[in-house]
Design a protein around this nucleic acid. Structure first.
Lengths: 179, 179
DNA sequence: GTCTATAAAGCGATAGAC
DNA sequence: GTCTATCGCTTTATAGAC
């Protein structure tokens, strides 16, 4: 692994522990066992380092979603969307832990997330409309509030797959997605 | 209003905009139109200033909850808990905006919130048990994930009471709390 | 009770050597 | 490609005058 990758890995860890503002480039350099100057050679600025991490994380997430989240039927779509937090956090745990820590205070992180979630919101409205729900927009908002809450919970706490699956399973039953 | 109150008000505003780490005591002093030294005379340290704001916010929240959230019947309790985000944010908007921005990165903020929510979690389990749900603990967790998501959403976005009420109304219908 | 002045440490970023 | 050394600035906190 190159020193550039060492820096990215260390930055992800330190940003997750402290947030982007409190994390110093010095502490990242120490964690990566490189000089502080090297960070600026590779990434030009601290903000740019954050942006690179975000880009890479959401590129990977988009790739995963494009295979797991096609719109075949409304029930399938809703069911798969409920599994999204588990799938993504399982695939890239440290990234999502960081993202849910920094999002409230980092506008770059918010922008990436909104761009990523927009199509899910639109398809979810369509799914509830297709199923004949009377207020598909409100239904989509309610389910997304729950999904974001679940996502944050998964990212913030120790990851217990069975427990997450129990939660999503019961939720799917509530929506009649499972008999 | 005393200069001490000016500082508290200014700190709440600056912490909400930037988070506790990025907000400097200098910027708080400027916003409050006092000298920076006065902040340390009154609050001793920046961390202590944050702690005082948290204490005061949750003292007020506990007071409000003690009147709005008695356990009379399981359906009433769940219904009232769903209204909690709206009631608290309406009563103390700036505090909850701050709290939901700083929580992921401030352990003091997390500790206060968990202490505050613990009895709600316990009563909610009891409520679902009293209603004969088969998995009351899981049900309580699911509803709390939604409530925390809603809370964060209310705190993070422009406050639209009618929209929030439409969301909680539909959720109450889903749980059979409204005919 | 409130201010000015300042200390001591830490910050992001750059220059220049190897 | 990588390091050491350092710059200019900001940070929290304190001392001491009024």
């Amino acid at each position: 692994m190159s020193k550039k990758d060492d820096i990215l890995e260390a930055a992800l860890k330190i940003f997750t522990e402290l947030g982007t503002k409190a994390a110093s480039t010095k502490s990242i350099a120490q964690e990566a066992q490189v000089s502080e100057a090297l960070i600026f050679k590779y990434f030009k600025s601290k903000d740019n380092l954050i942006e690179e991490i975000l880009k890479s994380g959401y590129r990977e997430a988009t790739r995963l979603v494009s295979t797991h989240l096609e719109y075949k039927s409304p029930t399938d779509y809703i069911s798969n969307l409920l599994d999204l937090p588990k799938i993504l956090v399982l695939a890239n745990k440290y990234f999502w832990q960081m993202q849910y820590k920094i999002m409230p205070l980092n506008s770059m992180a918010v922008a990436h997330h909104q761009l990523f979630m927009k199509p899910c919101y639109d398809y979810l409205i369509k799914a509830f409309a297709d199923l004949g729900y009377r207020k598909p927009i409100l239904e989509a908002e309610i389910l997304l509030l729950f999904i974001e809450g679940l996502w944050k919970h998964i990212a913030a706490n120790e990851f217990d797959v069975e427990h997450i699956e129990a939660i999503t399973y019961l939720t799917k039953k509530k929506y009649g997605l499972i008999l």
